[in-house]
Every structure is written in C-alpha cells, then in structure tokens.
Amino acid sequence: MKPAPFDYVRATHPDQALELLATAGDESKLLAGGQSLIPMLNFRLARPAVLIDIGRLGELSYINRQDGTLRIGATTRQAQLERSKLASAGWPLLARAIGWLAHPQIRSVGTVGGSVAHADPAAELPVACSVLEARMTVASRSGKREISADDFFVTHLTSAIEADEMLLEIAIPAAPDGAGQSFVEYSRRHGDFALGGAAVVIPLDAQGRCAGVRITLMTAAPVPWRARTAEKLLEGELPGAQQLAAAAKAAASEISPTSDIHGGSSYRKALAQTLCFQALTEAAAMATPPDVTRVGK
C-alpha cells in the first residue's frame, strides 16, 4: 500500500496553487487534509502526476460572518468548524453533522473544503451544504465563480469544480429566524460512512405553519438528495406527527439508493424514511415562529 510515484509541491499562496493547477490540470490533484486522498493514493486508486499541497494555506483557513452569511475558508479544519461558536449560534446543524463525521483525529486534520469537494453523498458536509443551501466559491487563474449547492454536486465523487479550479470558500446563508435544524444518521459503527441520514431545516410562519422546509437525504442518490416533493407536502402545514410522517414517506419514496455489502436498497429506503421522520420531528420540536424568536431576544 505505497502510492505510485508523484511530484509534490507545497503551495505557499492560493495564487501559486492556481498557477500550478493551470499548468498541470488533469494530471494534478489538490491535497488538503488528505483524509480521503491519501488512502486512495495508497490503494493506487488515484494516480496523480503532481500533488499540490494546499493544506497549510492559512489564507484559506477562517470562519467569519458577514451580513448574516457564514463564510468558511476551504482549508478550515473540520474540528474548527465543529467547535466554532459563530457557526453553532446560527447553524447548530453544522456541529451536529460534524459530530457524525469519522473520528476526532480525522476531523482535526480533515478540511471542510476537502470533504465538500470530494462530493461523497454518504458524507456529512455535502449533505449539510445542500440543506443549508450553501454557495461554493471556486477560482481558477482566470477568475472566481460561485456555485449553488444544487449545481455543485454533480454525481458520486464529482463536483462542478473544473480541473484548473480550486474551492476557496463555502458560504452559508442565514437560516430563517426560529427555524428548527436537525441532522441524524445511522452507520454500522460510530464514524463509518452512513447507511442513511437526513438533514432538515424547518422554518415556521407566524401561525406556526411550515414555510420553506428543506430536507436533504444522505446516501440516497449519487448526490446529496433534496427531497423537494416532501418539502412541498409540508408547505403551509402544521408540523404534526402525521404531516411529518407523510413527508418522510414521500421523501423516501423518491429515492432508489444503491445496494452494497452493508445494506440493500430496500433496507436503505426504509431507513431513510425512519431517519427522515426522526430529523423532521427533532427540527419541528426546535422550531419557533419568527416573532416568538424576536421576543425571546
């Protein structure tokens, strides 16, 4: 389990990394925390000619809040986001999601951007980005562009980042006032890739009815799966057990998860319904109509 030969360059500045990408393009691979890439190299499943190490670019490691939007630099370690009070104040779902992500040692090294760019639909951060409607800023030598989560995740392990581009930042818009947020998953062992999972945001209107519910299922499709039919079903409804159960059923009915040695499709589908209902129930319990929230403040 030794990697095939490769050249290694440690980038000293994001612009240098972009230069290197522009030159090496398809032949190169960005190395950040390395928690997915290094095993792939050692199994010789990935064989880049050049490895461009951006893991120590301090310019890309930050968490801040501007105009209500949470901005996370791509090389921010997952553990930093997990512990960020700024993040948990407005987006408690993030820390919940990262709590499921592998193990503390891995989260200390693994980066937020690395996991998002890896685009594994069984991973927590892509699902969190989907349900929180994050926007990803990517750059190449010729400029920057912003991509919505819906467009960012293309298929299994494939994002919309081009070969000469690099992920710079994940921007998460403010969650609606009083919205309940929940993230649940189930895996064979603590820290394993999920057999199923669901992330939910439930905003309520002044009458306590669902207004703009978002549901994303994990491991349900080649990309984090926004269950839009189920979301619509809840629009304008009171979030009672019956309505939530119907939504969970609708969400699971839309998916056909892939079978593997750890679980067949029908099991995963049923599990998705169970977990979706659990996430909806938790989020609904936390949700408050917006005016109540203001009074609370």
Partner: peptide, 28 residues
C-alpha cells in the same frame, strides 16, 4: 454483529480494507 469477509459471485473479495471489514471499536 459486524465482521464479515464478503466475496462477489466471481470470487472477488469485497472487504479488502478496514472500511469494509468492520472490526468492533470501543464504541461498539
């Protein structure tokens, strides 16, 4: 509960790493 070496019908082993061959950890 966890461990199983699996093969497909062609005799290809499907559990060639500890990601797929699930040893119990302290959590389990």
């Amino acid at each position: 509960l966890l461990e199983e070496i699996a093969y497909d019908s062609n005799g290809q082993i499907q559990t060639a790493s500890l990601m797929d061959y699930l040893l119990p950890t302290a959590c389990e």
